[in-house]
Simulated scan of single mutants.
Amino acid sequence: MTYDDDTLMAYADGELDPQQRAAIAQAMRDDPAVAAAVARHQALRGDVFAAFAGILDEPAPQRLQAPLPARVHDLDAARSARDALRQQEQERQERQQRRHRAWPRWGALAASLAVGVLAGSLGSGWFGAGGELALARDAGGALSARGPLAQALDRQLAQDPGSGGIRIGLSFVAQSGAYCRSFQLGGSSGLACREGGHWRVPVLADSGAAAGDYRQASAQLPPAVLDAIDARISGATLDAAAERQARDRGWQAGPARQ
Rank of each mutant, 00 (worst) to 15 (best):
G162T: 04
Y214K: 00
R244A: 15
G147L: 09
P59T: 06
R101H: 05
W103H: 07
A129G: 00
D154A: 11
G130C: 06
G116R: 02
A139P: 00
W103Q: 11
G208Y: 09
A51Y: 06
Q62F: 05
D227F: 06
D239G: 12
M28L: 06
G169V: 07
A84D: 11
R257M: 15
D154R: 03
D17Y: 04
G107F: 09
V203K: 00
A145G: 02
A134M: 11
G177N: 01
S144P: 00
G125M: 03
A36G: 04
V201F: 10
G120H: 04
A33H: 02
G141V: 07
A51K: 11
P69A: 09
A136S: 12
D31R: 10
A228Q: 14
G141N: 07
G235C: 14
Q88M: 11
R40L: 13
S189R: 06
P202R: 01
A35W: 03
L68V: 03
R247V: 10
R215Q: 15
A142D: 13
G190W: 01
A43P: 00
Q65E: 13
I166C: 06
D13M: 13
D4R: 15
D230E: 13
G14T: 08
W126S: 01
R92Q: 13
L226Y: 03
A35V: 03
V225I: 15
D160I: 04
L56N: 07
S80A: 14
R86F: 08
Q175V: 12
A253I: 04
D31S: 11
L238N: 02
E15P: 00
R86T: 08
A242Q: 01
L109C: 02
G130L: 12
H198P: 00
E89T: 07
V173T: 15
R21Q: 14
I166V: 13
W106T: 13
V48A: 14
Q90W: 08
Q20H: 09
A37H: 08
S182H: 03
R63V: 12
P32A: 14
C193W: 06
G131Y: 13
R40E: 14
G164K: 05
G107D: 01
V34H: 07
Q159K: 15
Q245C: 02
G130S: 15
A217H: 11
G147M: 09
A136Y: 02
W199A: 03
P59R: 07
A209F: 08
Q93P: 00
L44P: 00
A129P: 00
V225N: 02
A10L: 10
A110K: 10
S163Q: 15
R40F: 12
V173H: 04
A70M: 09
A240F: 05
P67T: 06
H198V: 12
A102M: 10
F127S: 10
Y179H: 14
A139Q: 10
C180T: 03
Q252A: 13
Q65P: 02
P223G: 15
G54S: 12
F127Y: 11
A119T: 01
I229W: 08
R40N: 08
G164W: 02
L122H: 11
L113E: 05
F172A: 04
A152G: 06
G107N: 02
D76T: 14
S234E: 08
A84K: 12
R247E: 01
D138P: 05
D13V: 05
Q156P: 00
T7M: 10
L85I: 04
L135H: 01
V225A: 05
A77Q: 11
